[in-house]
Amino acid sequence: MENNDSTSRRTFIAGSILAGLAVGCSNKKDPFTQSAEETVAASGEKVKLLSVDGEIVEVDIAYLKPIPHLPPVSIDESRIGIEGKKFVMVVDLARCKNLRKCQASCDHMHHIHSEQNWLKVYPMKEAEHTAPYWQPTQCMHCDEPPCVKVCPVDATFKRKDGIVLIDNQRCIGCRFCMAACPYSSRVFNWQESDYVEDPNIHVAYSPETSVPQKRGTVGKCDFCPDMYREGKLPHCVQACPNGVFLFGDMNEDSVTNGAETFRFSELIKDKAGYRLMEDLGTKPSVYYLPPVSRNFKFEDGMENEAPGETISSHTK
C-alpha cells in the first residue's frame, strides 16, 4: 500500500522534472508563461483547480504543464542559511501516539537506510511511579552544538537561521560528532543506502536536502530547509496526522503544523514548554510541550512497537 503510493509519487516527480527539462531545452521559454506556438488538443478529462482569486475552475488536463522543481541551493549557499530566519520546532507530547508516520516520511524523503532513523519515537518514563509517554526526538539544532564544536573539518556547521547541517562531501567519517551529541540524533552511513533511487532522477547533492546519501559519512535531521524554500513544512510535520510537530520561525514568533498556527511565545508559556537536557547548555531549538491532558493513552502507541523493544528500553 505504502509502497504503491511512493512509487506513483516518484514517477510523478520524475515526469514533471523531465517535462520541465524538455520545455526548458526546446524553446528556452519559462514554463509559467503560455506560448502562442503551443497548441494542445483537449483530452476531455477535466480537473478542478482553485484559482488565485479563490474561485474553483475546471481545466482540461492537457492544458496543465508540470512545473519543474526548484534546483537545490549550492553547498556554499546552504552553509549560510536563510536570511532573517531563526527556525524552531515545538513537539506537543500530549498529541503523540507513536504512529511514526513522521519517521516513515522522513526516512523515505531522505533516503535513509531501512535500519536507521533520523527521527526516533522514544517510550519515556522518568521514574518508577511516573507515567510513560511517547517522545519524538530528532536533531535539536542546538544553538551551542557540541557536534559542530568537535568537527575537525567544518563538515557540520551552524547556520544563521539556526539550522545545523552536514556537508557529506566534506565529512571524513570520524564520528566524533556522534560521540559528542547527547541526543543520539546522528546516524552513520555504514553502507550504501538501500533506498531504491529512481534512475530517471539525478538530484544534485545539497546539504539542505541531504540526498543522495553518501557511504562513510554522518547524517541527521536537517530541519528540511529545502521544503521551507518551497513554502512547505518539513516532512515530519506534514506527515503527522495528529499535529504533534509545530514548525516555525522564532523571529516571526509563530509555529504551525499546517492546520493550526500558534504564537510561539504564548504557546510555550501557556503549556509550560521545555527543552531536553537543559543542564548541558546545548540550547536546543526544539521545544517540548509536556504530555498532560493527552489525546491518546500510552498503550495505544504500543501497537507500532517491535515486539519486546519497549519493555527492554523504556525504564532505566
Binding site: Q103, E115, Q116, N117, K120, V121, Y122, P123, M124, T137, P182, Y183, S184, M277, E309, S313, H314, K316
Partner: peptide, 8 residues
C-alpha cells in the same frame, strides 16, 4: 547514551 537505545 542519555536517551535509551530505541528504534534500531
Amino acid at each position: 547514551p542519555f536517551l535509551p537505545m530505541h528504534n534500531v
